[in-house]
Design a protein around this nucleic acid. Structure first.
Ligand code: ZN
Ligand code: ZN
Ligand code: ZN
Ligand code: ZN
Lengths: 182, 182
DNA sequence: CTCTGGTCGGTTATATTATAACATTGTCTG
DNA sequence: CAGACAATGTTATAATATAACCGACCAGAG
């Protein structure tokens, strides 16, 4: 009869992503939290994307593999992943990216307290930095104002290195504007 | 019959704010733009508030003095004011504040390209900084990544100097958490 | 084992923030 | 006035996020 409405494919991602997901699962286990199937799927979908993903985009994609998903489904997963430091929310885009730190190392502890993001307006790619000088300049400025920092949002919009080396209307997101004959 | 639906009181704000509004009006005139009644009202409402104001809060307050105001009314005014550099949008709060620079000097030119904001979680007050070192650290980091900066959002959440000198649950927003004895 | 308390997710409805699209009115200029 | 453009009115809707309540499930205590 197989009437399971909540069927969830087991390992639908590229091997490289599955490795990251396995790491994330272990990381959660170490912290006595659980990277459940839904959370793992959502994280995989985020990692799979080359650009930050909005919650409702995510919901659409999630539905392909998990029927009956609704906004709370995805927002709960996002809350969890952000709490664990596995993803970041990009405020300017109302969208989510995987933590760059997690992608590169074993991620011993929650990251992201001082991350900065470079958001490319042309291709949408978002790079995570962790620049010491920015963090220090910021702490100093806050200290001078007598302000106790708890969290910071540092997001820089502009044009990334890759896009800068291309002509304005090359193979990126913006196809809409017809090339002026001028 | 006086059937004007769009009546707008002329100068409903404190004198100190009216002075700022007059300045802003002159500033716009110099730039060949117009601080119309609605725009002036919206700016006044923002300046009047001690904390950033959301668009719909603003709309409610605007309706007291300008009947028939609708979301586009306030969003258009906000877009204009932000374009002129008279207000800033705080991303983390989806809310708007007057430009601190405008409040202090004659504001020769659009400001805010490099502003930073300290947002107090307890009282909601938001202070605008313009710290040179932060800006430089940021430019350098971006340059090293080959990234061309166009705009930056730098918002720091924490506890402001005033609130730090008070006990946790003094006369501010958060009453809920009982003080731990530990 | 069963009870129990907590976590997780399903489901429905709604809140909050922002914009699209088109009509109308106002302002300036010649 | 006519024409052009800016500003606003008006209606509807898009996009993002949360509330509230329920039942399934699981882990540990007794
Ligand atoms: Zn990170
Ligand atoms: Zn790019
Ligand atoms: Zn400013
Ligand atoms: Zn405070």
């Amino acid at each position: 009869m197989e009437e399971h409405v909540t069927e969830t494919a087991p390992h639908p991602f590229d091997p490289a992503i599955e490795i990251l997901l396995d790491r994330a699962e272990q990381f959660c286990a170490d912290r006595r939290t659980r990277l459940t199937d839904i959370r793992r799927l959502v994280l995989g979908l985020i990692l799979q994307s080359s650009t930050p993903v909005g919650a409702y985009d995510l919901l659409d994609r999630l539905r392909d593999q998990h029927r009956g998903a609704a906004p709370p489904t995805v927002y709960r997963a996002l809350d969890f992943l952000a709490d664990q430091g596995l993803i970041h929310r990009i405020e300017r885009l109302a969208a989510f990216v995987g933590c760059g730190h997690m992608l590169e190392c074993d991620h011993g502890g929650h990251c992201g307290h001082r991350a900065q993001f470079l958001i490319c307006k042309r291709c949408g790619a978002t790079q995570e930095l962790e620049d010491r000088r920015i963090g220090e300049a910021l702490s100093d400025a806050a200290a001078r104002a007598g302000f106790a920092v708890e969290q910071s949002t540092i997001e820089i919009e502009g044009i990334c290195a890759a896009c800068r080396t291309m002509p304005e209307d090359a193979g990126s997101k913006l196809r809409a504007v017809a090339p002026r004959v001028g």
